[in-house]
Design a protein around this nucleic acid. Structure first.
Lengths: 214, 214
DNA sequence: GTCTATATACCGATAGAC
DNA sequence: GTCTATCGGTATATAGAC
């Protein structure tokens, strides 16, 4: 067992419950879960099939059976996230109509990363940083993720403003980018400068978006 | 000549002027310049000594003479940037006293990355994303960079507010993180969703910071 | 200081047995 | 589907000639 990969595996807590008793489809998803954790923690260029194999107690070749190339795995990771994101939005919109409930859910989505010890950042942030060093297929998937989330954010802002519940200046398109960029960059800053900085940031964003400040 | 490394070198325009006629110190700085470009474009884990060697027309071993390990090179890169940042702030503070001139210089610092084709992002963004997969020494340097820039931003905001030239709600510490995070994340989003999104973001930040909105 | 040559490790990926 | 075994390529790094 490679010491380096084992060390990384020891830090990782995800997918440990699927180590034994896996069938075909189960292994495929266990691979995706482990790879996702590694991608958001270390980046696409800093994890290998071996890292996943050690973590799951399987062999390198087993992963190649499910994902012939690392590019295949990478594309599937982002594609899976994109569909999960679409579903997250869909379910949320069914359950909540208050613009602030939607915004808070979005903030919580990011705050959850902090609770995992701040070792993970968002897909968008990692793929944006590594953009020049990832396969074309991953770039295209990342693009679609970004358009999806920005489009939804714009609609939330517009509805919030129309209802007098959310306050902002300028075009909603620009405000949406500002919010997304702040959260994405904020998670990265939290890694370097501490988690409290991110909580401070969330409070700042909330403050500025609240109507009729005292 | 490795086709992959040559391809990456072809995309890179930096340090081409120092290819020939280099002495000892000159080579060392040419290595740093090229490595810096590669770090901000591809990330620490996606560039190699070979990439630098091809770009500069030298051999792998020559780089190891100046920087025995890649960690040495990585630490020196961030350390050099940190000192350059301190000097940038110092010179700027000598030349400008208007808070808005300081803020605009900060925005320009980031806008310059766009003009290079959007292939580079800021140090902070790359190191924040790769934080879990870089050597300890680089993490510590990154921490100091972050504290430095946030400390300066807070002082700019405080002076601007005191002079009635800059408007914001909440504590300056939170606003500084918000600004830094937005720019850092914005550059990454620009890679994925287009440079115009970043210019839109800068305008949004400017709009919100201007006092007495119409 | 830079070179050639090489050591050693890791990477993604494939062949073929089970 | 997963295994063992292995290939070819690339990574960081070193030794020794010039």
């Amino acid at each position: 067992m490679s010491t380096k990969a084992a060390e990384i595996a020891r830090e990782t807590t995800a997918a440990t419950s699927v180590r034994n008793r896996r069938g075909g489809r189960n292994t495929r998803e266990a691979i995706l879960d482990t790879a996702e954790e590694l991608l958001q923690r270390r980046g696409y260029n800093a994890f290998s099939y071996h890292h996943i194999a050690v973590q799951l107690g399987i062999r390198n070749a087993a992963i190649h059976y499910h994902f012939p190339s690392k590019e295949d795995l990478g594309i599937e990771l982002v594609s899976r996230f994109r569909m999960r994101l679409a579903e997250w939005i869909e379910v949320l919109e069914e359950q909540e109509s208050d613009p602030w409930a939607l915004l808070d859910a979005y903030f919580e989505f990011y705050l959850d990363y902090l609770d995992e010890g701040g070792r993970k950042i968002c897909f968008s942030g990692m793929l944006g940083a590594e953009f020049q060093a990832i396969p074309d297929g991953m770039r295209e998937e990342a693009r679609q993720c970004m358009e999806q989330i920005l489009h939804w954010l714009v609609s939330v802002l517009e509805r919030g403003e129309a209802a007098g519940r959310i306050r902002y200046e300028g075009p909603p398109e620009a405000k949406a980018v500002q919010l997304g960029a702040a959260l994405q960059g904020g998670l990265q800053i939290a890694r370097v400068a501490g988690a409290d900085r991110f909580r401070q940031l969330i409070e700042q964003l909330r403050l500025e978006l609240q109507p009729n400040p005292i």
